[in-house]
Amino acid sequence: MVHKKSFGEHAFDITNVVLLFTLSAVTLYPIVYVLFASISDPNQFVQHRGILWWPAGFSLDSYKMVFENPNILNSYLNTLFYVVAGTTLNMVMTALGAYGLSRRNVMWGSLIMILIVLTMFFDGGLIPKYLIVQGLGLTDTYLALIIPSAMTTWNLIVMRTAFQSVPVSLEEAARIDGANDWTILCRVVIPLSMPVMAVMILFYGVWHWNKWFDALIYLRDRDLFPLQLILREILVQNDTNSMMTSVGGGDRMPVAQTIKYATVMVATLPILFLYPFLQKYFVKGVMVGAIKE
């Protein structure tokens, strides 16, 4: 069927595409600017005014300084630890909870589920939680960023939904072969829910990578700080002094600018690099959650 597009329809299409293109440009440009600025030559960069279409000169000095900075390096390692340890605990807890709560014929299961879902609506708030964490002696330890965020209710619901969709017949077959619940979880349910497991690892991982507020209230000891808290000092409080110790007087100003951009890139690149490969899983994760509790 040949359908001749009317003028109105053309205008509609063109406006739409132009608007979406603008949105994409506005979304992307700040990131591109930071990237260009971070690899610019510091002296040329401070003289440049306005939009960067291309890096101003080329130099990796800012990156060198970032990686030589003990504060950043240490907090980077801390963050890696928080991500790995935190996500591992998240996955174990969420899988255990999701399995237990997805079984039928568990007398107290639905009551436990209701009590858990209720916590999404009733919340003690910041201060009581802070006092609990403090009371347990977790403040100023690595555990303060791991134990209180051992799992999230939303992800528990998502994983439980996935576990419920594993065919009962497979479970029964395993049971006839003498498998107990532990074996069924590890050998049947988890292997059949791999896409959801992947999504959960990603969600939890990004969550830990980007978290900073818990560290702000629970940690005093700088040696335990995650990367985001150091970033806050450098970017938001504009305090690059701690990074400039190794630079001579005259060079200070220009490098102080580009160092900030290099720090942003260092903190964001791991996720941006992984992003194209993981995007479809992330999207799938939103879907699984959306389907229904």
């Binding site: 949105l23 994409s24 979304t27 992307l28 700040p30 990131i31 930071v34 990004v206 990578w209 980007n210 900073w212 985001q228 808290l229 970033l231 806050r232 450098i234 970017l235 938001v236 900030k260 942003v264 903190a267 964001t268 996720i271 941006l272 992003y275 194209p276 995007q279 992330f282 999207v283």
Partner: peptide, 17 residues
């Protein structure tokens, strides 16, 4: 793909920028 990206950038970095 482009408009999803900011979701993964930490608040600290967004405000820092």
């Amino acid at each position: 793909s482009i408009t999803y990206i900011p979701h993964f950038i930490s608040v600290v970095v967004v405000v820092g920028m």
